[in-house]
Design a protein around this nucleic acid. Structure first.
Lengths: 141, 141
DNA sequence: TTAGATGCAAATGATTTGCATTGTG
DNA sequence: CACAATGCAAATCATTTGCATCTAA
């Protein structure tokens, strides 16, 4: 078991969250994948293990994980939310042709938070940034 | 009539888009407001003028305007898309308490597009950035 | 005149909710 | 045992679609 999963399990236990087989499977899947899955992706991926699992259970659990800070929700314009268990500081590149989402790292844009704060009077807590374009495979095709 | 509206009308005419009273009203409203309205906001705002206007008409027209590059679509995690007729380079500050969206300007983040391109192999065409936090009114309350 | 636009209602798809049942701690 | 979690179905909400009617050019 990955230490990341162990750590997440411990954290949930500390917060008084009960562990169920479904919850464990969803969490474990989220920590293992790097594909930014939608609820439906998770539903399909765990269908073999849990033929009777309800989508409501997936929504419920993602909400629990969100509140625990274990996952982030990503919303693009295309219908379904996507979820990302990589909560490290990072950004996303999105292919406007095939929809693929690729993580990348870069020095964080704290300066823009300061500029925003000066110009708008907001107390800025975080920012979101993503680049759009065409991925390597799509541009080669 | 604002020169912005004149220019938009001319552009649509050139693209062979017919002008209807509904289309004119939606376009004019979009250019006048700075509130980043949702479809429902537009529907309510124009309800007096057009008691029988269909939401489908609003969706249709926003799609036309999007394709003409006259508006941008903004999607946050909260259900409905919002639309912005300010297509100049600018960013948004979003209040996580009251949902208000405030425009602000800043030197564009082209460097992050380069970094993203190097790290991911994408051909980067544009980026999106927004800061989240608490607006002045909400933090004073 | 005629292709494109509108209005309406039904369809779709994501997400939420209510509730009876089950299972964790 | 108590209360939280699950599964299921119905409800909700944004958006899309089909189609008959209308209208801008």
């Amino acid at each position: 078991m990955s230490s990341q999963l162990e750590h997440a399990l411990k954290q949930l236990k500390t917060s008084g969250v009960r562990m169920t087989p479904q919850r464990h499977a969803i969490l474990s899947f989220m920590l293992k994948t790097h594909t930014h899955p939608s609820v439906d992706d998770i539903f399909k991926a765990l269908g073999d293990q849990f033929p009777n699992m309800s989508v409501a259970t997936i929504y419920n659990n993602l909400k629990v994980f969100l509140e625990a800070g274990l996952v982030r929700e990503l919303t693009f314009g295309d219908g379904a939310s996507r979820f990302d268990a990589n909560v490290d500081e990072h950004y996303h590149a999105i292919c406007d042709d095939c929809g693929k989402i690729v993580d990348f790292h870069s020095p964080p844009l704290y300066q823009i938070e300061e500029i925003a704060s000066e110009k708008t009077g907001f107390i800025v807590k975080h920012h979101r940034m993503e680049v759009h374009g065409t991925c390597q495979q799509c541009s080669e095709a």
